[in-house]
């Protein structure tokens, strides 16, 4: 007799996930429509953490805005500093000294690594690979120490000024970065071994949120994370990137 698979009768469930859910880093609410495990519809409410920075900046002078830019994304406050300073310098037509530009690129790259380690670490611990998450946070801590040594703060750095920087690099900057990156490389090798061939992690990454054929333009609007960013930065002469 032929086996017949029967679908269980299902009913569409409306579920409110959030505003404070352990799986979301921060407050955000998803109004979900579920059919079993399948998400049919997701209406996102994003406003819980809106802090009105743009309105506050209207009342501030141009230099007073820099501490606000630290707080836009705590994982890459240095990059936010640099981006804001570049915009203001473009408006007033000011050019910074070459040494300042190089330092800005170096600290931006440190912040970028910090940000990637945060996001990848969180993503892997969300998928159950908590060990790799902690290893990345350890690597991130080493970068935090460099940033702390450089700026005096771990997160809200306020290091960049319009037309320059708060101060020069500390005298032992090169050695401390070299030393830290020896350890970071080892940690990242461990993360590679933990994640790259981890079935759950790679399946989850490869099968969700796909870009068909890399044709980002055709998709619902996506800010492409790494796809062409470097190429674009180079093409448009963003600071000294790609010199």
């Amino acid at each position: 007799m032929k086996a017949e698979t029967k679908e269980l009768p299902s009913e569409i469930m409306e579920l409110q996930m959030g505003p404070s859910h352990p799986a979301t880093h921060g407050t955000i609410k998803f109004n979900l429509k579920l059919d079993g495990e399948k998400v049919l519809d997701c209406d996102v409410e994003v406003g819980f953490l809106h802090r009105g920075f743009d309105k506050s900046c209207e009342q501030a002078t141009w230099t007073q805005v820099i501490p606000y830019t630290d707080r836009l994304n705590y994982a890459s406050s240095l990059i936010n500093n640099v981006g804001y300073a570049l915009a203001v310098e473009k408006l007033i037509g000011a050019e910074t000294p070459l040494r300042c530009q190089y330092i800005r690129v170096i600290v931006s790259e440190l912040a970028r690594l910090y940000d990637h380690l945060t996001c990848c670490g969180m993503a892997s611990s969300e998928l159950g690979a908590i060990t790799a998450g902690f290893y990345m946070i350890e690597a991130r801590e080493l970068i935090t120490r460099i940033i702390e040594n450089l700026t005096g703060a771990r997160l809200t750095v306020t290091y960049v000024r319009i037309g320059g920087l708060k101060h020069d690099l500390p005298h032992d900057f090169a050695e401390s970065v070299t030393r830290a990156f020896k350890t970071i490389r080892k940690l990242l090798d461990d993360c590679d071994r933990l994640l790259s061939r981890n079935r759950i992690f790679s399946t989850a990454c490869r099968t969700s949120a796909l870009f068909p054929g890399n044709r980002v333009e055709l998709l619902p609007h996506r800010a492409d994370p790494a796809l062409h960013r470097r190429r674009l930065r180079r093409a448009q002469g963003f600071s000294l990137f790609g010199v």
């Binding site: 980002v216 333009e217 062409h228 190429r231 674009l232 093409a235 448009q236």
Partner: peptide
């Protein structure tokens, strides 16, 4: 807006 092919904004 951005043209990725022509690399222009």
């Amino acid at each position: 807006i951005l043209s990725r092919a022509k690399r222009r904004r």
